[in-house]
Simulated scan of single mutants.
Amino acid sequence: MMKIKYSLHTLRLAQALLATRTRQHRCFSGAIEKSNNFFFRQLFDTESCTYTYLLGDSDTREAVLIDPVLEQAERDAKLITELGFKLIYAMNTHMHADHITGTGRLKSLLPGSRSVIGKSSGAQADIHLCDGEAVRFGCHQLVACSTPGHTNGCFTFVCHEQCMAFTGDALLIRGCGRTDFQEGSPETLYHSVHSRIFTLPDHFKVYPAHDYKGQTASSVGEEKKYNPRLTKSLEEFVQIMDNLNLPYPKKIDESIPANKVCGLF
């Protein structure tokens, strides 16, 4: 067998290179572990096609729930308990017209949690948010960005650290919320989306309050390029929204009064 001889210089160089790679690997692993304390789960209500989002800090076990549905409150509370989280905030992106919120019911199922909604919504809550305020859970936070137009009290919750935007009904996947009732304004909605959501980096994920075609998420870049309504000029957008001729929401007469009082009526 042939023996290969290495000089002392070569051996020391190889040892140094190995040590450097080991340090780089350890640093990279540490960064991955640090980011892994962010928990995310997307849930769905089949009747209203509503997405509910559970976000948590797996170290402190604090969690928030975005846009819960009354009929799914027991499901959500059970999941939160099973996962060992403590729900601190049950949040709504706006006062919904197509379903009753589960925030009030969750407060009784998970004592200590508080309801959160935009101040301009006209709805009762433990905490009323204003533009730019942050909702914190563990070491993470959601920044409340006012995006009216579907309703006056619409908010988009942005998690800059995780590059996520929870857009409610302001921006849907290849669509947007209707503007023909409940303080709706196509001009206001257009400006909200273009100035507050489309100004986020293109890679930010978009998580809407609803989807009716089976898609679960999009991105800012995708919607800026492919959204059939919001890629148009303001004048074209207004014309589109004013001529949708959508049916009257089935549960609006029940949902609006209930959602003014956290879904408890």
Score class of each variant (00 low, 15 high):
S219C: 13
V238G: 04
Q215F: 12
V220K: 02
A217S: 09
Y226W: 11
S218M: 06
E235S: 12
E236I: 00
K213M: 13
A217Y: 08
Q239L: 14
G221R: 07
P208Y: 08
T231C: 11
N227Q: 07
G214H: 08
Y226V: 03
E235A: 10
F237A: 04
Q215R: 14
Q215P: 00
K225R: 15
V238D: 03
K213A: 15
Y207N: 01
A209M: 08
F237H: 02
H210E: 13
K213D: 15
K232D: 00
K213S: 15
V206N: 05
L234R: 05
S218D: 10
E235G: 00
T231R: 12
K213H: 15
D211L: 02
E236T: 01
D211Q: 08
V206P: 13
S218C: 06
Y226P: 00
I240D: 09
K224H: 14
E223L: 01
K224M: 12
Y212M: 13
K225P: 00
S219E: 06
A209K: 04
E236H: 03
F237Q: 00
H210Q: 12
E235T: 08
D211R: 03
Y212C: 08
L230R: 07
K213P: 00
Q215K: 14
P228N: 12
A217M: 13
L230T: 01
E223K: 13
I240Q: 07
A209W: 05
E223R: 09
E236N: 01
E223M: 09
L230V: 03
T231W: 03
L234I: 07
S233H: 06
K232P: 02
E236Y: 06
P208T: 02
E223Y: 05
L234A: 04
T216M: 12
K232E: 01
E235N: 10
S219L: 10
L234Q: 11
L230H: 05
E235I: 00
P208W: 09
T216S: 06
Q239D: 14
K225T: 14
E223H: 12
L234Y: 01
S233Q: 05
T231Q: 06
V220A: 09
G214S: 10
N227K: 02
T216G: 02
N227Y: 00
V220H: 05
S233I: 04
N227D: 04
K232M: 07
N227T: 03
S219P: 11
Y226A: 10
P208F: 10
I240L: 11
A209P: 00
H210P: 06
G214M: 04
V220L: 09
K232S: 05
E235C: 01
R229A: 08
F237M: 04
S219W: 03
K224C: 14
Q239H: 14
E223Q: 15
R229N: 07
Y207G: 01
R229S: 05
Q215S: 11
G221I: 09
S233G: 04
F237V: 03
L230W: 01
K225A: 15
G221H: 07
A217K: 06
D211I: 00
A209G: 13
L234T: 02
P228G: 06
T216W: 15
V238W: 03
